[in-house]
Amino acid sequence: MSLNAVSTRLPHWLIKKIYRNEASLETKEILKSLKLNTVCESARCPNMWECFSKRRATFMILGDICSRDCSFCSVKKGVPRDVDESESAGIAEAVGRMNLKHVVITSVTRDDLEDGGSSHFARTVSMLKKRYPEVLVEVLTPDFQGKVDCIKRVAESGPDIFNHNIETVKRLYEYVRPRADYYRSLDFLGFIKTNYSGIYTKSGLMVGLGETGRELESVFDDLRSAGCDILTVGQYLSPSKNNIPVAEYVHPDVFKDLENIAFAKGFLYVMSGPFVRSSYNADQVFDKIKNKDKTEV
């Protein structure tokens, strides 16, 4: 064993098993044949093989080129192409072939479009709801630069869960999300909860970027004040040498502590762990909050 190999190994809790089996290969084939983008592949998600093996994927619409240049993300950046409206039908087809009961749709950010891509989101959600009324639809959208009409358009297309990620603590926005705004994202979530009380709201955070525990608690408080129902917390992993480096590998015990703290602040459901991502096991989360709602009633 070389010393070099030892020194570059990550902590044992950050080693992910590859689930390369018939189901995962079939999922890949379906996505490829329908020319669909997923954030699983584009963001080099370490959970990709696991999720594909369970016949799950998070669809990424509005192309595969992002108009922003967030320093934590590996999705391609540049000048996006025209919107391909056939993406919606492709996703609807994939949902049927993968027998999905819970669909998560996200996108690249499209600041170049007047509507931020909200019409395409709405078209896709409406199509899915019409073709599969029993299927739950979760959207994970960019901030649409805070444009209320865009947020309304997506909310009124009928998603069951509306996710918008706060991503990091307020102090680190300039460093991590220079073209986003902490309060704009909070207002975004608050607007949905105030105007569409039947939609669950959700947000996610990366840790290991240099934030403190106190700063994280402050974000939890702000999200609860905005009425956020569901929270995900996961370890930031730097996609390449061109992205910002990891400041800390957070121990699983700390993730558990964060989960307990967040639950105590009143979130309906919290998922916190090294490999937790925005849409990781999203279907299981919905089952749990539905049961919780029933219990509380």
Binding site: M1, S2, L10, I15, K16, K17, I18, R20, S240
Partner: peptide, 26 residues
């Protein structure tokens, strides 16, 4: 296996005897 972003364990697809490891660690 380690990439810039993550570390993965690759499982054996079948039971057997390992006859060749073509590369060194690192």
């Amino acid at each position: 296996l380690t990439t810039d972003k993550a570390t993965f364990n690759v499982p054996a697809p079948e039971t057997g005897i390992i006859t060749e490891l073509y590369f060194e660690e690192g």
